[in-house]
């Protein structure tokens, strides 16, 4: 039976790839984000691919008053409601260093906003006794680095939140997948220096779908980032603090 997926941050190319794969399987989609014009195009594309329902709803992580409409739209569909969170923002660390007020935005986009949204959704999933939450975090959340530690901290917070949510939803027949991508070839990273082992958004979307089907808890995508991060996490702090990785 086809399920309903809420996609938060539907304008990200990772989300686009994920939504299209869901559309191929006939899922109903509620695309949520800020750029309505762009989401309308993705919705049309998903309908052409086989989604019986693909609608767009405005969602801004910094405006909690927009959250309710997204949830209400999804609630109109019967059956299982799932949610995938792709929202996040990563300004240059140097910009944040110059303007500390940027910290709030990063944390709201990558952690606080999505967490508040999921708190609102969780009771509905519990009531329906099913549903999967996919939360896109980042390998950057595994350790604070000089290059992007505010973003990393927001992602770390989100990881911890997801782990608790998993603990909660599991009891009600639901599930939570934490996704930690390495470098992905998207608008966020296009033209940045120092990218390596860059994965396509399609590859990430495939990995997420597999993880959902197998009810994995935490995945790294591509998988080898698990080992890279294992090494990075195991460097003692007294050494790590002097590195610029």
């Amino acid at each position: 039976m086809s399920e309903t997926w809420i996609i938060l941050g539907a304008t990200s190319s990772m989300a686009r790839a994920f939504a299209r794969k869901l559309a191929d399987d006939g899922a109903r989609l509620v695309l949520a984000g800020r750029d309505m014009d762009d989401m309308k195009r993705t919705a049309a594309d998903c309908r052409a691919k086989g989604s019986p329902v693909a609608e767009v709803v405005r969602f801004d992580a910094r405006q909690p008053e927009t959250f309710g409409a997204v949830i209400r739209r999804a609630e109109r569909e019967d059956g299982t409601i799932n949610a995938a969170v792709f929202v996040g923002s990563m300004p240059d660390q140097s910009a944040i260093d110059a303007d500390p007020s940027l910290v709030d935005g990063v944390i709201t986009d990558s952690f606080a906003g999505p967490a508040r949204f999921l708190q609102m959704l969780a009771p509905i999933m519990e009531a329906r006794g099913s549903g999967t939450v996919v939360g896109v975090g980042s390998v950057a959340g595994d350790r604070g680095r000089i290059g992007n530690y505010v973003y990393g901290a927001a992602k770390a917070g989100f990881h911890t939140y997801l782990s608790g949510l998993r603990n909660r939803l599991t009891r009600a027949g639901g599930h939570v997948v934490t996704v930690k991508p390495g470098f992905v070839d998207t608008a966020m990273t296009w033209g940045l220096e120092g990218m390596f082992l860059v994965a396509t958004p399609e590859k990430v979307a495939d990995d997420i779908l597999k993880a959902v089907a197998k009810r994995k808890n935490v995945i790294y995508t591509p998988f080898f980032w698990r080992w890279i991060m294992l090494i990075i996490r195991s460097v003692p702090e007294f050494i790590f603090k002097k590195l610029s990785v």
């Binding site: 304008t11 190319s13 686009r16 750029d35 014009d37 762009d38 195009r41 998207t186 608008a187 296009w190």
Partner: peptide, 8 residues
């Protein structure tokens, strides 16, 4: 440049 959306 590699735009992903119409506005860009």
């Amino acid at each position: 440049a590699r735009p992903e959306r119409a506005s860009a």
